[in-house]
């Protein structure tokens, strides 16, 4: 049995009340579906005295596709976003990625905001308290030494959120709320700028702040994104390779702009612009060159399970397969 430590549970009845409690410090955590936080509290990799349950807050709910920026409440369950017919039409790569997060039970509870704020993962941290202590701890827990990069100065646990690479290539932003003089103040930041290289605190959301919504700009004509995930099992597993490719084509089918986002490297996902291929047709040569570029620029670490050199090679293949969906009708698209 894995029990939760004793906790204070506050059921927030207003956004102001939630933000007030969250401003007390790192020992107060926001709770949505609980599918990440509860597990991390149980294994002791996250320490908290209080959790603020956000379920009832209407500010965190709703999917609005009427404007140029589609607004998805951070508290929307993954299943509801993934199965939303309008979003499937507008952003099939996003709904495809969300439908592949974990398992049906976790998508029934977990939320989009929760996936964006997913804690970093590492084979040396996602273990029992006893296991971590017995091996002397690491930068993120119990100790002072990194076992992924011996002698390394910073935690390099991986961001394994399936939603993030897709939202990055879609140019999505997040809305973050905080209190100032008793009033709710909102700021916006690009998902591409949301993450830091410090695996101990990789989400750039300060104490007292709360991610309230995700804003996704509608795609212009000729633009499409594809998400590719590789994990050992098709269900439950976090991605071991996670990449999204977006290509915007002009009327002649030539590349107008493009980008590739890659997750499960370190704490910060990588965004690679494809500017040097602008004006080129989308063909096997371009696919091979882009895949080679991604291979050169990305170095998966031995921080999650599976051989990191294989994951690097596999990343090249997944990028290749993603781009082939543009010119091979039989290639699986999403």
């Amino acid at each position: 049995m894995l029990r939760l430590p004793e906790l204070e549970v506050v059921i927030a009845d207003s956004l102001v009340a939630a933000l007030t409690r969250l401003a007390e410090g790192r020992h107060v955590r926001a709770l949505q579906g609980g599918t990440d936080l509860v597990a991390n509290l149980k294994t002791g990799q996250t320490k908290a005295q209080t959790v603020v349950a956000l379920g009832p807050l209407s500010e965190l709910h709703g999917i609005d596709t009427s404007g140029e920026m589609v607004r998805i409440g951070a508290g929307e369950r993954l299943v509801d976003v993934a199965q939303n017919a309008e979003l499937q039409e507008l952003f099939p790569a996003l709904t495809y990625a969300l439908a592949r997060i974990a398992s049906p039970q976790i998508r029934n509870a977990g939320t989009l905001g929760g996936n964006l704020c997913l804690d970093t993962r590492c084979r040396f941290i996602n273990q029992s308290d006893l296991w971590r202590e017995a091996m002397g701890g690491c930068l993120k827990s119990h100790g002072h030494e990194c076992h992924v990069i011996p002698g390394g100065g910073g935690c390099v646990a991986a961001l394994s959120a399936d939603s993030v690479p897709v939202l990055m290539v879609l140019g999505a932003e997040v809305e973050i709320a905080r209190l100032q003089d008793g009033a709710v103040l909102l700021r916006r930041t690009r998902v591409a700028d949301l993450y830091d290289t410090d695996g101990l605190r990789h989400v750039r959301i300060a104490d007292g702040e709360l991610l309230t919504a995700v804003l996704v700009p509608k795609l212009p004509e000729g633009a499409r994104a594809v998400y590719r995930k590789w994990a050992v099992r098709q269900s439950i597993d976090f991605p071991l390779v996670s990449t999204a490719v977006r290509l915007d084509l002009d009327r002649d089918g030539k590349l107008k702009q493009g980008k590739v986002a890659v997750g499960v490297l370190g704490p910060r996902p990588r965004l690679i612009p494809l500017d040097r291929w602008v004006g080129r047709p989308i063909d096997e040569t371009l696919a091979q060159q882009v895949a080679a570029q991604v291979f050169d620029r990305c170095h998966p670490l031995p921080n999650v399970l599976y051989d990191h050199e294989y994951r690097r090679e596999r990343l090249r293949v997944e990028v290749l397969r993603a781009i082939r969906t543009w010119f091979t009708p039989t290639a699986a698209a999403n």
């Binding site: 894995l2 579906g33 599918t35 379920g55 039970q105 976790i106 029934n108």
Partner: peptide
């Protein structure tokens, strides 16, 4: 796995007070 409001969820991840 139990069903909460009809949807299968994990009872080990769900706080009882919620």
């Amino acid at each position: 796995t139990v069903r909460v409001d009809g949807a299968p969820v994990l009872a080990c991840m769900t706080l009882a007070v919620l």
